[in-house]
């Protein structure tokens, strides 16, 4: 059933629900802190690593030629003299070692390429290091940024479950919902307003989190991640509202909350276990990749379903 008042009522209730969410300090803090804390920790770690980074230590024998020793010192390698450089590397005493013709390394990175280059040049080798080709926009830091965003998305999706359940359970217990349902508007309106308000607020904070990570370390395809994130937030709101709605008043709060959180976690698991369908399913799609349009569409459909289910359940009294 549709009433001419439904549209204005949906808008008014959405506005008031968003206002209520923003006035709850705990809600705002819970969404502001994860990206701020994670990004802050990341920047702090980077600063510490840069400031406290010690020069790479290379073990060499005393028989190494003086010329090569000078070249290594000029390249800012810290040298220690040992009888057996290979044994020193094997024991983990040093990161690298050389006897002038052979190089022993514990890991390959920019420093190892530089070291190998010096040794080869010393012997007149024509070898020139060729760095591996990188995919456009897929550098190491943006992959890390993407992982951080995926983790934040999981967190916000779990918030969505809590919001969905809390917004209905609390208003049902204190009579707010009854007061709204006694208004001359269709029964789906209060449920849909809660879904829209919760999804919007979560999406705003998710967008802000993605922007932070993109600014600090870069994020691969942020818009695609945003689509998956909105889908996850909306899907989790649907899950929360439907679970608390079908549970009824006698089930309380904790049981439905636990069930909905478990269901959300299971959907994330689908992202790893059912790769054929995961890109299309809200929540599961966060780790499955894809354009994000399909889960976004499904989430919007689930919002309509939430409103309809809420209306049906409310009509039963």
């Amino acid at each position: 059933m549709i009433s001419p008042r439904d549209g204005p009522a949906l808008l008014a209730l959405c506005q008031i629900m968003i206002r209520r969410l923003f006035r709850e300090g705990m809600v705002v803090r819970s969404m502001l802190w994860p990206p701020v804390l994670t990004a802050g920790t990341l920047v702090g770690t980077m600063v510490v690593v840069v400031l406290l980074k010690s020069p790479a230590t290379v073990a060499i024998p005393s028989t190494l030629s003086a010329e090569l020793t000078r070249e290594l010192t000029a390249a800012e390698f810290q040298l220690i003299w040992v009888d057996d450089p290979a044994a020193a590397v094997k024991r983990g005493d040093v990161w690298a070692g050389t006897d002038g013709t052979t190089l022993w390394l514990t890991q390959g990175d920019g420093g190892s390429v530089s070291l190998e280059s010096i040794v080869r040049k010393h012997h007149g080798s024509a070898w020139r290091p060729v760095p591996p080709k990188q995919l456009p926009g897929a550098d190491q830091s943006s992959l890390a940024g993407t992982t951080f965003v995926q983790i934040i998305t999981i967190l916000f999706a779990l918030y969505g479950v809590v919001f969905g359940i809390g917004m209905v359970a609390r208003d049902r217990d204190d009579g707010t919902l009854e007061a709204e349902l006694s208004l001359p508007i269709s029964r789906w309106v209060p449920g849909a307003a809660r879904w829209i308000a919760g999804t919007l607020v979560l999406s705003i904070f998710l967008g802000y989190s993605i922007a932070i990570f993109d600014a600090i370390i870069g994020v691969t395809n942020p818009l695609q991640l945003m689509r998956h994130g909105i889908a996850a937030c909306g899907g989790s709101m649907t899950l929360g509202i439907i679970v608390i709605g079908t549970a009824g008043t006698k089930q309380g709060f904790s049981g439905p909350l636990a069930f909905a959180l478990t269901s959300a976690t299971a959907l994330f698991g689908v992202g790893f276990s059912a790769l054929a369908i995961a890109p299309y399913v809200p929540l599961a799609s966060v780790f499955a990749g894809g354009s994000g349009w399909s889960p976004l569409g499904l989430t919007l459909a689930s919002g309509v379903l939430t409103g309809a289910g809420f209306g049906w359940r409310s009509g039963k009294g």
Partner: peptide, 16 residues
């Protein structure tokens, strides 16, 4: 449209 119902619980959101 023609009635108003006042439930036993106040039904007033605490933050508004």
């Amino acid at each position: 449209e023609v009635l108003a119902y006042v439930p036993a619980e106040a039904g007033l959101p605490v933050r508004l």
